[in-house]
Design a protein around this nucleic acid. Sequence first.
RNA 1: GCGCCCGUAGCUCAGCUGGAUAGAGCAACGGACUUCUAAUCCGUAGGUCGGAGGUUCGAAUCCUCCCGGGCGUGCCA
Length: 658
Amino acid sequence: MNILRELRSRFKTALQEFADDPASFANLVRPSQDAKFGDFQANCAMPLAKKTKTNPRELAAQIVERLDVADLCEEPDIAGPGFINLRLKNDWLQQHVNRLAGDERLGVAPTVAPRTFVVDFSAPNVAKPMHVGHLRSSVIGDSLCRVLSFLGHKVIGDNHIGDWGTQFGMIIFGFKNFLDETAYASDPVGELARLYRLVSQLSDYHATKARLPTMRETLGENQQAVESTEAAADPADKKARKALGKARSELGELKQAIGESEKKIEAVDNDSALKALAESCPDIADRARQETAKLHAGDEENNRLWNDFIPQCLAALQSMYDRLDIHFDESLGESYYNPLLADVVADLKQKGIATESEGAVCVFLEGNAAPFIVQKTDGAFTYATTDLATIKHRVEKFQADVILYVVDARQGEHFKLLFSAANKWGYSDTELRHVSFGTILGNDRRPFKTRSGDTVGLESLIDEAVVRARAIVDENDQTKKDADGNPAPERAEDERAAVAEIVGVGGIKYADLRHNRESDYVFSWDKMLANTGDTATYMQYAYARVCGIFRRGNVDRETVRSSPVAIELASDTERALAVQLSRFSEAIDSVVFDYRPNILTDYLFATANSFSTFFAECPVLKAETDELRTSRLKLCDLTARVLAQGLQLLGIQTTERM
RNA sequence: GCGCCCGUAGCUCAGCUGGAUAGAGCAACGGACUUCUAAUCCGUAGGUCGGAGGUUCGAAUCCUCCCGGGCGUGCCA
């Protein structure tokens, strides 16, 4: 049972005669912001009084008169301008917590209206190893899948892998020209990644070199323009000043871009082997593009190579997902949709939705300046085409009610166009939703750039997290002493390793999930790998402490759970923990409302915090009476289950000892 | 030019549909291990919520303008 929902429904009834739309005012019942105001507060009297031009405190009193919550709450308080403060009755709360303790779903009822969700997330490019940039989509998407299916929805997690784009032309070109056979034999995926980087670097080298003179020329022109504007500028003219400021900052950017370009060129020029390679193929970009075109056109050799590469790349990705405990129900790459694209464009044209413009086939959408290009001048299809084909497929194969795209906010405009194109095309019954997220920034507050190589590889990030966790596990275990004060480590090597892996991986996922998905965040090793404060470790530790109590007391959790002795809330600390535990279902509901896993991380942190206070203040095994001991054991068991379930919904594992 | 987003404590971030004295974590400072795991707990200090107006009984939240920053913007995905 969701107490908040129950209270809202009680308020809805009470508000019937005061408002036309009692439900919207009933929604103003919230968890209290401060425990001193009780457990819940209703903020509906003030806006309602404004509407009806009455005194808010008097109206609050009238609402309270109509309100039937006597079974759940103490007599409501009216405070301040007209807040109605509600405090759950201890008796009722006790009963409620006892019900929760016996409930496998911990108070989270399955949805009454199950829907079919396709969740599009992760979507890495097989040509490149995964880096921190892939973390957000993977971790948020996986968590949303878990939460939605826990609520009883049908969920298809779909990894829309990039396996067909221009990067493959580069790999194929590299494979044909620069292959290191020994390296390929021992680490094929590593060698393919090297080839990709190499070809990409060389094409970039030529492109940059070609572009540089124009850039310098522009720089000179702009500099002159700025100088002459400066001389003529009227300091009182705000607009002119602003324009000048902008021109200056653009000049700075251009200078920086030139600097970066020079560096790129130098990097190749200073390496004689690279330089020789670069000189041997000045038209590398074109030739790589041709390989892509040949692949797409069905060229036998390129398709054979592609078929050789893909399984190995996929296997490498899979081992990453295994380690992260991330799962998909479907994994159809762009290549899967390739054969369907021509029909998509033909259909769009035939229905008059797409038209030719400047040689490309476009869908023009009202209110959008940019067209949605489904076929380029050279005949090639774009990811816009693929995305449309994918929607068609998902609706036809899964009868999707909702498709969630867990994708970078920078692609917002693409999705806006995609959704309205799909709508026009006839897929208006399916809810399409861009669950966008912010960018991971470097220390300079600029997005990590794949090209410049300053991104952090996901594998090395996880390795480092595990190493740090392992150091603490070792230290803790080695300082353990027996009754005589002699060192007495308890853990075997494999157990220590397993704990370190769970703590390390969990920490990284949590560090990402705890941010509001919309905001950008600054990446920092230390924050990612922290294990004090608001971290996964904190929750895992609370869980392990519960397990420790049961272990130390030699108590079986199932047995306690079925004991007839009830939980009694003997202190404020226990009451606070009970209230917190009873809010689990509210937290889950809020996560789904706007697809925000950080609400769940907040909730779990608060829960673990409540428990840690309880742990410090309330002896369990040495409680004053047997009844209290059992009561507290039950509370511990419930806490552990909520924590484990909550973490599981975030994709984070727990361990019985740490 | 147009569009989207951001600016909250020294640092990193929460703040739900407008609610009471704006909250966490880290860092700092002070306390707590002969007692169930101190990866912990309790406490102190730290704010002109970028600025100015406006709407409102009430604004970090909504509106307008300004300042500062990011991202995207016809053929990459």
